[in-house]
Amino acid sequence: MKPETRLGPNTADVAAKVIDGEAIIMNLANGLYFSMDEVGSAVWEMVEAGFSLGEMSDRLQARYDADRETIAGDVNRIARQLLDEGLVVETEADAPLHDGPGGDGGRGTYAAPTLNRYDDMADLLALDPPMPGLGALPE
């Protein structure tokens, strides 16, 4: 993917949350769910903020003690995985929505982001498909 590619959460099917530097991402359409630790959760926060892949790499390079090539390769790989799992979609935006995650001021130890995949709900979901949500009632 190109550095200027921007991704956003697949809001139709996905719910996600970042807590204490870890992300949990649920694909409610197929029952698969995922977690990502520190660097991965930062990537997810930047996805939510509408960063391009290049901007993600810039931000991670400023925060971690790793070379640009390694980081850019990892960002590209994890972005591809997120796309393949249907967790994100490519967007047409030409700028981030906001500043994204802040750093703690220091340069942390870099660990390649990993998308941990859990499929224990998927088989059950196949037997018992979810019903689409209904809108809220008027006040």
């Binding site: 719910a15 949990i24 977690s35 709900m121 059950l124 689409p132």
Partner: peptide, 26 residues
């Protein structure tokens, strides 16, 4: 919290009828 969310959220939100797709529920 993330461990608890990983244990509770999938079966609560994915499998329960109606409850699973609203961002507010998660």
């Amino acid at each position: 919290t993330i461990e608890a969310l990983l244990r509770l959220a999938p079966s609560s939100l994915i499998l329960l009828p109606y409850a699973g797709v609203a961002a507010g529920e998660f």
